[in-house]
Protein backbone atom coordinates (compact mmCIF):
# COMPACT_ATOMS: atom_id res chain seq x y z
CA UNK A 1 0.00 0.00 0.00
CA UNK A 2 2.52 2.60 1.11
CA UNK A 3 4.90 1.58 -1.68
CA UNK A 4 2.14 2.17 -4.22
CA UNK A 5 1.53 5.56 -2.64
CA UNK A 6 5.21 6.53 -2.94
CA UNK A 7 5.31 5.36 -6.54
CA UNK A 8 2.21 7.43 -7.37
CA UNK A 9 3.74 10.47 -5.70
CA UNK A 10 6.93 10.26 -7.75
CA UNK A 11 5.04 9.57 -10.99
CA UNK A 12 2.84 12.64 -10.51
CA UNK A 13 5.93 14.68 -9.69
CA UNK A 14 7.70 13.39 -12.82
CA UNK A 15 4.88 14.02 -15.28
CA UNK A 16 3.35 17.19 -13.86
CA UNK A 17 6.60 18.97 -14.76
CA UNK A 18 6.07 17.98 -18.37
CA UNK A 19 2.32 18.71 -18.37
CA UNK A 20 2.54 22.11 -16.73
CA UNK A 21 5.78 23.07 -18.48
CA UNK A 22 7.65 23.93 -15.28
CA UNK A 23 11.14 25.23 -16.09
CA UNK A 24 14.08 23.02 -15.09
CA UNK A 25 15.72 25.66 -12.90
CA UNK A 26 12.68 25.75 -10.61
CA UNK A 27 11.77 22.09 -10.26
CA UNK A 28 13.30 18.98 -11.77
CA UNK A 29 11.67 15.59 -12.26
CA UNK A 30 12.87 12.76 -9.99
CA UNK A 31 14.51 10.94 -12.90
CA UNK A 32 16.81 13.92 -13.45
CA UNK A 33 17.47 14.15 -9.69
CA UNK A 34 18.65 10.55 -9.78
CA UNK A 35 20.93 10.90 -12.80
CA UNK A 36 22.46 14.24 -11.77
CA UNK A 37 22.73 13.17 -8.17
CA UNK A 38 24.50 10.01 -9.26
CA UNK A 39 27.01 12.11 -11.20
CA UNK A 40 27.82 13.98 -8.00
CA UNK A 41 27.63 10.95 -5.71
CA UNK A 42 31.14 11.27 -4.24
CA UNK A 43 30.50 14.72 -2.88
CA UNK A 44 27.02 13.74 -1.65
CA UNK A 45 28.30 10.70 0.23
CA UNK A 46 31.18 12.61 1.75
CA UNK A 47 28.86 15.38 2.94
CA UNK A 48 26.40 12.82 4.28
CA UNK A 49 29.27 11.44 6.33
CA UNK A 50 30.15 14.94 7.61
CA UNK A 51 26.57 15.77 8.61
CA UNK A 52 26.11 12.26 10.00
CA UNK A 53 29.06 12.72 12.35
CA UNK A 54 27.60 16.00 13.62
CA UNK A 55 24.19 14.42 14.15
CA UNK A 56 25.45 11.29 15.89
CA UNK A 57 27.90 13.13 18.15
CA UNK A 58 25.36 15.78 19.18
CA UNK A 59 22.67 13.20 19.74
CA UNK A 60 24.88 10.84 21.73
CA UNK A 61 26.18 13.61 23.99
CA UNK A 62 22.59 14.79 24.52
CA UNK A 63 21.47 11.31 25.59
CA UNK A 64 24.48 10.80 27.84
CA UNK A 65 24.00 14.12 29.66
CA UNK A 66 20.21 14.46 29.57
CA UNK A 67 19.26 11.10 31.05
CA UNK A 68 21.21 11.48 34.32
CA UNK A 69 20.02 15.08 34.65
CA UNK A 70 16.39 14.03 34.13
CA UNK A 71 16.87 11.27 36.67
CA UNK A 72 18.41 13.64 39.19
CA UNK A 73 15.65 16.21 38.78
CA UNK A 74 12.97 13.53 39.12
CA UNK A 75 14.40 12.26 42.39
CA UNK A 76 15.66 15.41 44.05
CA UNK A 77 13.13 17.88 45.37
CA UNK A 78 15.84 20.56 45.57
CA UNK A 79 16.74 20.18 41.90
CA UNK A 80 13.03 20.11 41.10
CA UNK A 81 12.61 23.54 42.62
CA UNK A 82 15.83 25.03 41.24
CA UNK A 83 16.95 23.52 37.94
CA UNK A 84 13.60 22.26 36.66
CA UNK A 85 11.93 25.67 36.13
CA UNK A 86 15.12 26.80 34.43
CA UNK A 87 15.09 23.79 32.08
CA UNK A 88 11.44 24.44 31.21
CA UNK A 89 12.22 28.10 30.44
CA UNK A 90 15.20 27.21 28.26
CA UNK A 91 13.07 24.66 26.44
CA UNK A 92 10.86 27.57 25.34
CA UNK A 93 13.84 29.33 23.74
CA UNK A 94 14.24 28.39 20.07
CA UNK A 95 17.72 26.85 20.33
CA UNK A 96 18.33 27.17 16.64
CA UNK A 97 18.40 30.95 17.10
CA UNK A 98 21.73 30.51 18.86
CA UNK A 99 23.31 28.95 15.79
CA UNK A 100 24.74 32.20 14.31
CA UNK A 101 26.24 33.07 17.71
CA UNK A 102 27.92 29.70 18.14
CA UNK A 103 29.30 29.88 14.65
CA UNK A 104 30.66 33.38 15.21
CA UNK A 105 32.26 32.22 18.45
CA UNK A 106 33.56 28.85 17.35
CA UNK A 107 34.04 29.13 13.61
CA UNK A 108 32.90 26.98 10.69
CA UNK A 109 34.10 23.65 12.08
CA UNK A 110 32.47 20.59 13.60
CA UNK A 111 32.09 21.84 17.17
CA UNK A 112 29.38 24.51 16.74
CA UNK A 113 27.22 22.05 14.75
CA UNK A 114 27.60 19.35 17.36
CA UNK A 115 26.62 21.89 20.03
CA UNK A 116 23.50 22.92 18.11
CA UNK A 117 22.43 19.32 17.48
CA UNK A 118 23.09 18.68 21.16
CA UNK A 119 20.91 21.64 22.16
CA UNK A 120 17.94 20.69 20.04
CA UNK A 121 18.11 17.08 21.32
CA UNK A 122 18.92 17.71 24.96
CA UNK A 123 15.72 19.33 26.18
CA UNK A 124 13.13 16.90 24.86
CA UNK A 125 15.17 14.07 26.38
CA UNK A 126 15.48 15.79 29.77
CA UNK A 127 11.81 16.72 29.96
CA UNK A 128 10.62 13.26 28.98
CA UNK A 129 13.08 11.62 31.38
CA UNK A 130 11.79 13.76 34.24
CA UNK A 131 8.25 12.78 33.37
CA UNK A 132 9.28 9.13 32.99
CA UNK A 133 11.05 8.81 36.31
CA UNK A 134 8.48 10.71 38.33
CA UNK A 135 5.34 8.94 37.19
CA UNK A 136 5.60 5.47 38.70
CA UNK A 137 2.10 4.34 39.68
CA UNK A 138 1.27 4.65 43.35
CA UNK A 139 0.47 0.94 43.58
CA UNK A 140 3.85 -0.06 42.17
CA UNK A 141 5.77 2.29 44.41
CA UNK A 142 3.83 1.01 47.44
CA UNK A 143 4.49 -2.54 46.35
CA UNK A 144 8.22 -1.88 46.07
CA UNK A 145 8.35 -0.17 49.43
CA UNK A 146 6.47 -3.02 51.10
CA UNK A 147 9.14 -5.50 50.02
CA UNK A 148 11.81 -3.53 51.87
CA UNK A 149 13.92 -3.33 48.71
CA UNK A 150 16.60 -0.65 48.80
CA UNK A 151 16.59 2.28 46.40
CA UNK A 152 19.03 0.71 43.95
CA UNK A 153 17.20 -2.58 43.65
CA UNK A 154 13.86 -0.79 43.27
CA UNK A 155 15.40 1.37 40.59
CA UNK A 156 16.80 -1.51 38.55
CA UNK A 157 13.83 -3.84 38.84
CA UNK A 158 10.89 -1.44 38.84
CA UNK A 159 11.57 2.23 38.24
CA UNK A 160 13.89 1.95 35.26
CA UNK A 161 11.84 -0.50 33.18
CA UNK A 162 8.67 1.42 34.03
CA UNK A 163 10.30 4.66 32.84
CA UNK A 164 11.75 3.40 29.54
CA UNK A 165 8.67 3.89 27.33
CA UNK A 166 8.38 7.58 28.22
CA UNK A 167 12.17 8.00 27.83
CA UNK A 168 11.86 6.69 24.30
CA UNK A 169 9.26 9.34 23.50
CA UNK A 170 12.05 11.85 24.18
CA UNK A 171 14.69 9.85 22.28
CA UNK A 172 12.50 9.65 19.18
CA UNK A 173 11.50 13.28 19.27
CA UNK A 174 15.17 14.24 19.62
CA UNK A 175 16.12 11.94 16.73
CA UNK A 176 13.71 13.84 14.49
CA UNK A 177 15.13 17.18 15.66
CA UNK A 178 18.75 16.16 15.22
CA UNK A 179 19.07 16.29 11.41
CA UNK A 180 17.00 19.47 11.25
CA UNK A 181 19.38 21.07 13.75
CA UNK A 182 22.47 19.96 11.81
CA UNK A 183 21.12 21.14 8.45
CA UNK A 184 20.15 24.58 9.75
CA UNK A 185 23.49 24.99 11.51
CA UNK A 186 25.19 24.22 8.19
CA UNK A 187 22.99 26.70 6.34
CA UNK A 188 24.14 29.41 8.68
CA UNK A 189 27.82 28.87 8.38
CA UNK A 190 29.93 26.02 7.11
CA UNK A 191 32.10 24.87 4.26
CA UNK A 192 30.93 21.27 4.10
CA UNK A 193 28.00 19.02 4.95
CA UNK A 194 24.60 18.44 3.33
CA UNK A 195 23.14 21.75 4.56
CA UNK A 196 26.05 23.58 2.98
CA UNK A 197 25.62 21.58 -0.22
CA UNK A 198 21.89 22.29 -0.53
CA UNK A 199 22.50 25.98 -0.04
CA UNK A 200 25.29 26.19 -2.60
CA UNK A 201 23.56 24.20 -5.36
CA UNK A 202 20.33 26.15 -4.85
CA UNK A 203 22.31 29.35 -5.30
CA UNK A 204 23.65 27.86 -8.55
CA UNK A 205 20.10 27.20 -9.84
CA UNK A 206 20.47 23.46 -9.52
CA UNK A 207 17.26 22.24 -7.86
CA UNK A 208 18.09 18.72 -9.09
CA UNK A 209 21.15 18.57 -6.84
CA UNK A 210 19.27 20.29 -4.00
CA UNK A 211 16.74 17.47 -4.11
CA UNK A 212 19.55 14.93 -4.11
CA UNK A 213 20.93 16.62 -0.97
CA UNK A 214 17.50 16.62 0.65
CA UNK A 215 17.22 12.93 -0.22
CA UNK A 216 20.43 12.10 1.62
CA UNK A 217 19.44 14.27 4.56
CA UNK A 218 16.18 12.35 4.74
CA UNK A 219 18.04 9.04 4.63
CA UNK A 220 20.23 10.25 7.48
CA UNK A 221 17.19 11.22 9.58
CA UNK A 222 15.46 7.93 8.83
CA UNK A 223 18.59 5.96 9.72
CA UNK A 224 18.89 7.64 13.13
CA UNK A 225 15.18 7.29 13.81
CA UNK A 226 15.34 3.67 12.68
CA UNK A 227 18.22 2.94 15.06
CA UNK A 228 16.32 4.47 17.98
CA UNK A 229 13.21 2.52 17.03
CA UNK A 230 15.26 -0.67 16.84
CA UNK A 231 16.67 -0.02 20.30
CA UNK A 232 13.12 0.54 21.52
CA UNK A 233 12.00 -2.79 20.03
CA UNK A 234 14.86 -4.57 21.75
CA UNK A 235 14.51 -2.88 25.12
CA UNK A 236 10.76 -2.62 25.60
CA UNK A 237 9.12 -5.21 23.35
CA UNK A 238 6.43 -5.56 26.00
CA UNK A 239 5.17 -2.00 25.61
CA UNK A 240 1.64 -1.56 24.31
CA UNK A 241 2.78 0.50 21.31
CA UNK A 242 5.08 -2.31 20.14
CA UNK A 243 3.03 -5.40 20.75
CA UNK A 244 2.66 -7.54 17.71
CA UNK A 245 -0.90 -7.74 16.52
CA UNK A 246 -1.88 -11.38 16.46
CA UNK A 247 -4.81 -12.27 14.30
Amino acid sequence: MSIAFFAAFFLIWEYSIVWFGIPRYILTPPSVVVTKGWADIDRLLYYTWITGVEVVLGYAVAVILALPLGLAIAFSSILRRTIYPFVVCVEMVPKIAFAPLFISWLGFGLLPKVIIVFLVCFFPIVLNAILAFSSLSEELSRFSVSTGANAWRTFVKVRLPAALPQCFVGFKYAAINATVGAAIAEFIGSDQGLGFYIQIVTGNMRPDLAFAGIFFLTILGLALFGLVTLAERLLIPWHISLRRQSH
Binding site: S137, E139, L140, R142, V145, S146, G148, P161, H239, I240
Partner: peptide, 18 residues
Protein backbone atom coordinates in the same frame (compact mmCIF):
# COMPACT_ATOMS: atom_id res chain seq x y z
CA UNK B 1 6.79 3.01 58.44
CA UNK B 2 6.30 0.37 55.75
CA UNK B 3 5.92 -3.14 57.13
CA UNK B 4 8.08 -5.51 55.13
CA UNK B 5 7.35 -8.86 56.74
CA UNK B 6 3.76 -9.06 55.56
CA UNK B 7 2.11 -9.96 52.27
CA UNK B 8 -0.07 -7.32 50.66
CA UNK B 9 -2.39 -7.72 47.75
CA UNK B 10 -3.40 -4.28 46.57
CA UNK B 11 -6.81 -3.49 45.14
CA UNK B 12 -5.23 -2.57 41.77
CA UNK B 13 -2.88 -5.30 40.75
CA UNK B 14 0.84 -4.69 40.83
CA UNK B 15 1.79 -6.88 37.87
CA UNK B 16 4.41 -5.19 35.71
CA UNK B 17 3.96 -5.39 31.91
CA UNK B 18 7.61 -6.25 31.20
Amino acid sequence: GPQTDIGIMFQDNTLVPW
